[in-house]
């Protein structure tokens, strides 16, 4: 069931067996803790002591690490260079001719990178261990708008097909002599013959898809049921409340640590 836009990786792990809302609460806790704790060390503590052990427990540590690095590394390089070199004022740490890396800039870059790493790896942890449809059904059952959950799920599955369609149109236009490489002007000019058929074709597709959904009672009012059964327990419900309390506590701790510093 994996595809380019769904990272879910089936494993027989304890995390995979959790109710999707418990997993969501756990990940939101990691996210809140990573953003609430101060200094460059706060997000890294959450990443190293919370997210990585959880990923190991979910048997998705290599997947999480490789994807998180791919996403966070380009950001880290650019933010360290820009903030380190162009920080106004500050204490030089390394002199590179007319340029110098500033301690304050590097400090800020480390903090920003830590936060990005925490946010990215939290979402990755959720995506790798929780089926998106199960999460959406769980949200549905808690009163989330059905149209919203449908859009999220359909985007995950349909986006790769949309990309494939764009590639097909591009190939067809190239076969008819459209030049898509070279100067910026030429590339921009090549966009129109790609975008027009793609957008028009997609509008027609959307109309047909809306009809197909209607034919399957999507817009019918009244109670809905689900084939997928989501196992929830009183322990997990209690755990979610504890995580909520933990989020409040960690925010309070973050505020206290900032004031104390």
């Amino acid at each position: 069931m994996t595809n380019a836009f769904s990272l879910y990786t089936p494993r027989a792990s304890a995390l995979h067996r959790l109710h999707p809302l418990t997993m969501l609460a756990l990940v939101v806790f990691c996210l809140v803790a990573g953003l609430a704790l101060p200094g460059p060390w706060g997000p890294y503590v959450v990443f190293l002591l919370l997210i990585l052990p959880l990923a190991a427990l979910g048997q998705v540590l290599p997947n999480l690490l490789s994807t998180a690095v791919k996403i966070a590394l380009p950001f880290a390089i650019s933010v360290f260079l820009i903030q380190g070199l162009f920080w106004t004022g500050g204490t030089p740490v390394v002199e590179l001719g007319p340029l110098s890396l500033k301690r304050e800039g590097l400090w800020f870059a480390a903090q920003s990178t830590g936060r990005v790493l925490t946010v990215v790896s939290s979402f990755l942890l959720l995506s790798l261990t929780t089926r998106p449809d199960a999460l959406m059904i769980a949200l549905d059952q808690r009163g989330a708008p059905k149209t919203l959950t449908y859009i999220v799920l359909a985007t995950i599955q349909i986006a790769p097909r949309f990309q494939a369609k764009a590639r097909t149109i591009l190939d067809a236009q190239r076969a008819r002599g459209l030049e898509t490489e070279g100067s910026v002007g030429r590339r921009v000019a090549a966009l129109l013959p790609l975008v027009v058929p793609l957008v028009l074709g997609s509008i027609i597709d959307i109309e047909e898809r809306a009809m197909a959904l209607d034919a399957r009672a999507f817009s019918r009012s009244g109670p809905k049921t689900s084939l997928l059964t989501l196992r929830d327990t009183s322990a997990q419900r209690a755990g979610r409340w504890l995580l909520l309390l933990g989020m409040i506590a960690v925010v309070a701790l973050g505020i206290w640590l900032r004031r104390a510093a």
Binding site: D133, Q157, F218
Partner: peptide, 28 residues
């Protein structure tokens, strides 16, 4: 077009088939 009739909201053929029944509120 078969592609446009697949909801995109379910991940297996079995779940895809159940989509309409879910909307009708049929018991599992």
């Amino acid at each position: 077009n078969p592609f446009n009739q697949i909801t995109g909201a379910r991940f297996t053929v079995r779940e895809e088939l159940a989509f309409g029944l879910e909307n009708l509120g049929r018991p599992r």
